[in-house]
């Protein structure tokens, strides 16, 4: 119901235009386009994780559900020859289905218990991929998850091409962010935040809190599954390690650094931290350490995250204007 004001609209439009022109802006540099694709996938993961946060939960199973989407789509292709175009949707659906089943017991837990339970769920999903060697390929993972080609008659697009894959990925990520933004800025989002703020009161005003939690968790995990399928066909190789707890943890860091109260937060966090992470690549062994320093510095120097920057700037200018 907080409909976007003009400044927000301008910012989102600007971001979309930059994203659309990006391959040209980086002069079709393969490495930079790779970074851009990584950014889109991280944005999708962080945003859907943030959707669960809007009900007051941090799910450490998120990378696991991303993995379910990835493995579903990968195996459909490698074992049954079903192309990516179906794999993406079926991967998302599978992830959503499993999320629906798991969330029934999971969403009865709260706070730190949810945190531990979701951690366990994420770990169990990963271990399952490693354990069932015949089906999932064990720790070696799945190879040759090729992206699809489409023939439009006059032109043939091979999504093995990075620029083409970038646009594909951008399309789906924009869709994911749009879905989450729409949900969050409407009555549904108000209901979610009211559960976040005061579950007891929400319940006594007629909200079926448990049902809404299950739905939100399922939707967020469906979107994570879609992200996973996109990831699989981009990397062409996945293993259980791709979806371990660190993946969830990085997504959480993106959300925290970006900001927790608006959908702009995880988007800004994922974009900026992916870039920082890539810049730190040169430091090799110390990369994680520097990343930690950046995280701590952000939390201390910029409480509330990147999303608070526009407000801070506005106040700064108003003060100097006087």
């Amino acid at each position: 119901m907080q409909h976007l004001d003009r400044a927000h609209k301008a910012a989102w439009t600007g971001l979309l235009i930059v994203a659309l022109l990006l391959p040209a802006l980086v002069a079709f540099d393969t490495y930079l386009i790779h970074v851009a694709i990584t950014i889109t996938l991280n944005v999708a993961l962080a945003t859907s994780m943030w959707m669960i946060w809007s009900l007051g939960f941090i799910s450490f199973a998120h990378a696991g559900f991303m993995g379910i989407g990835a493995y579903t789509s990968a195996l459909l292709l490698t074992k049954l020859g079903i192309s990516m175009w179906y794999g993406l949707w079926l991967g998302a659906l599978m992830s959503g289905l499993i999320a629906l089943i798991i969330s029934v017991p999971l969403m009865r837990t709260r706070a730190v218990y949810f945190f531990m339970a979701s951690w366990a769920v994420g770990e169990v999903i990963k271990r399952n991929f490693a354990y069932f060697r015949d089906l999932f390929g064990g720790w070696d993972g799945v190879f040759d998850i090729n992206p699809a080609k489409i023939n439009l008659g006059f032109v043939q697009i091979d999504f093995a091409d990075r620029v083409a894959y970038y646009y594909l990925s951008l399309f789906f990520v924009a869709l994911i962010v749009l879905i989450i933004h729409r949900t969050n800025s409407s009555r549904t989002g108000m209901m979610y935040w009211s559960i976040h703020e005061n579950e007891l009161l929400a319940q006594h005003t007629g909200v079926n809190v448990f049902r809404e939690k299950v739905i939100a968790f399922t939707v967020a995990c469906t979107l994570a599954g879609l992200t996973g399928a996109l990831y699989a066909h981009y990397q062409t190789y996945i293993s259980p390690k791709s979806f371990d707890i660190w993946k969830s943890e990085f997504a959480l860091v993106h959300v925290i650094v970006g900001g927790l109260t608006t959908v702009g937060g995880p988007v800004a966090g994922a974009i900026s931290l992916t870039i920082v992470d890539e810049l730190l690549r040169a430091t090799g062994y110390f990369r994680t350490m520097f990343f930690g320093v950046v995280l701590i510095a952000t939390v201390i120097l910029l409480p509330g995250g990147l999303e608070t920057i526009p407000g801070r700037l506005r106040r700064l200018f108003q003060r100097s204007g006087k």
Partner: peptide
């Protein structure tokens, strides 16, 4: 408005 959930046709 949040309290009005039951009658807001969500």
């Amino acid at each position: 408005m949040a309290g009005n959930y039951l009658h807001a046709q969500h």
